[in-house]
Design a protein around this nucleic acid. Structure first.
Lengths: 349, 349
DNA sequence: TACGTCTGATTAATCGTTTAATCAGACGTA
DNA sequence: TACGTCTGATTAAACGATTAATCAGACGTA
């Protein structure tokens, strides 16, 4: 009742005040030449009437929608909230809206989701590609968040460095035999994390791919970590918190004490890492920073299309940026049990 | 090179074929009167040129943007992915795009996020309100997903019924003394779930609010469940998986066996419930169905504004719908230990 | 032949904003 | 007085689609 459903238009304000629409537009955007006094009067009238600019009108005229797309491999991914929140925040700061696109399920969905966003007229998009997927040419600027080793990547966390961090932490505690746990061989991110872990020379590692165990034993299958422990491993470094949780609860259930008997580490610092007992040592990525850079690069490309790499794909021509990860030490890591250390030393001699 | 950056316009197609833009528009939308032969020719030309309609142009003319907003209390909420995915999917099916709005942090953020979406010209929005917040009048159709007891609610899971489900399950297993764990007294959802649990008369319950313990003991504080166990509780029914995980790991760490010594249940069926040991008995809501209904009602209101309740707020005038929850029985629940049952019987006599 | 009807297509207005081009004065200066 | 300059505002043309109104023929019928 108070404010009519379809708000007042620019012309309405112009009319009631007695000036041209151009002047109103200028006053509101602060662009043209309008006397301060009149500008103030217009602004006052505008929000007195509850004026809201028509985004369609503006978009049509300017050719920019003020909206960017966010494409995610699988929205149900537990890491997604962090990413979406960070991107949404950074985009809002930059004056953009965020349209989501879910590319779950079949691999073709990613292309399809991207297509839908383009149809909706996004000015650019941020893509977190599916594992092993490459983003194909898109008719607008695209910032890719994956991992430095992925071709076409724009910005990402230093997954390799994160792996190193974990491994060094375990090494410093005295661990020498560490069981690495991965989930998906095709994931660039996971491979980079594992490579980082393996790069720490003090450690003797072995990698357990969960996917294999998974299929062997069925979904409910356990990791059968007990035998690994007997082989002399004193720590388990996983490539994600989910797997760490899996390992931690399985070990605990079978009577192992964490971290006294065995240390466990995760990756990503999901929301529950601090509330479990023992709380989980993990590695966090600075999503706010990553999102900020992604949006910044993207906006630059939107404003200056020359920054788009024409020769290759429509990916951004900008230095690839890598953001350091940080180790979050909690209670799931500690020095290895004496027994094992002795055994290991004996083995060396 | 092949397709110019700014795609061909409607007029371009009209020109190359030699007809009017109106005819092209009609042919593509299938609305006006166009001969089949010509329509086919136009369509062929259109996607030969890779024509993509300008959403701005269309939105301006039709007054509808084809985009709806999704406002969430806190994107970082672990339940968020499910919601977002379901809404995105349902909206896509209905031909709408989804613009996200995060109302994290201060309470005023919700209103602000909503405002931003309205400015962006959404045709309607789905709001999952903050705890205890009420959605104030918005200048477009709004579907609210919260809980049936919330005024203005449009559709939601039957949280009360879910609570009943858990409680009955425990009662059927033989439990009589159950410790209820909540996290936030202001949450309508949590209160409904707890009320449902308490409604099962076979159970004697007591409620532990996590927020109190939390502040008393600091963030790292444990739930001190050991003493509760000694008081004769044989099961812990929480109001969310997060708290169930918290309880489960704490008990396990202190040597209790789950489910042999004590049963634990969660709520929401988060992605990790099935991979922990023991896997967690939880209650799942049918988000796909809820989202489907929300979008359906919303679309109806968008197409027929008469469905908007003008007298009250701009909420939808539609029967409130409630979607049943389903119990997911896993390995964290079992009959109570003999010892306790005996003790309880003795207590009764 | 004249008239109504139906079909297939066109004309032209419109949605609401932005912005380049223009204009009317005022003012200072030569 | 005449001329350039500067300021504050206006004019009018887009932007790209949709759609009501109109029109030209073809055809059937009285």
């Amino acid at each position: 009742m108070t404010t009519s459903r379809s708000g007042p238009k620019l012309a309405k304000i112009a009319e009631t005040i007695g000036v041209s629409t151009a002047t109103v537009s200028n006053a509101l955007s602060g662009k043209g030449r309008v006397s301060d006094e009149l500008a103030a009067r217009i602004r006052r009238k505008a929000d007195e009437l509850g004026y809201v600019a028509s985004s369609a009108g503006r978009a049509l005229r300017t050719g920019r929608s003020g909206v960017i797309g966010l494409v995610l491999p699988d929205i149900a991914n537990p890491l997604f909230p962090q990413i979406a929140q960070a991107i949404e925040h950074a985009a809002t700061q930059a004056g953009y809206g965020v349209l989501i696109g879910d590319s779950r399920g079949e691999i073709g969905m990613q292309t399809e989701a991207i297509g839908r966003l383009v149809e909706r007229g996004v000015d650019g998009m941020v893509v977190v590609p599916r594992r092993g997927t490459r983003v194909i040419d898109i008719d607008c600027p695209v910032a890719v968040i994956d991992t430095p080793s992925t071709p076409g990547n724009t910005v990402s966390a230093d997954h390799f460095g994160g792996g190193e961090l974990v491994a060094r932490h375990l090494a410093a505690l005295g661990h020498r035999r560490v069981l690495l746990v991965g989930a998906n061989r095709e994931s660039n991110v996971q491979n980079d994390r594992l490579a980082g872990m393996r790069s720490v020379s003090e450690l003797r590692t072995e990698t357990l791919w969960l996917d294999e165990r998974w299929y062997e034993a069925g979904q409910g299958g356990t990791l059968s970590l007990a035998e690994k422990m007997r082989e002399g491993f004193t720590a388990i470094a996983t490539v994600s918190d989910m797997q760490a949780l899996r390992a931690l609860t399985e070990l605990q259930r079978n009577g192992w004490r964490i971290p006294e008997d065995v240390s466990v580490t995760g990756f990503d610092d999901l929301p529950w890492t601090s509330i479990i007992t023992p709380s989980l040592t993990s590695v966090r990525m600075d999503m706010a920073r990553i999102a900020g850079i992604a949006i910044e690069v993207l906006c630059a490309a939107i404003l200056d299309p020359a920054k788009i790499d024409q020769t290759d794909r429509k990916t951004l021509r900008a230095p690839i940026q890598t953001v350091a990860m940080t180790l979050v030490e909690r209670n799931s890591t500690a020095p290895p049990p004496i027994r094992d250390e002795t055994a290991f030393k004996g083995e060396l001699a």
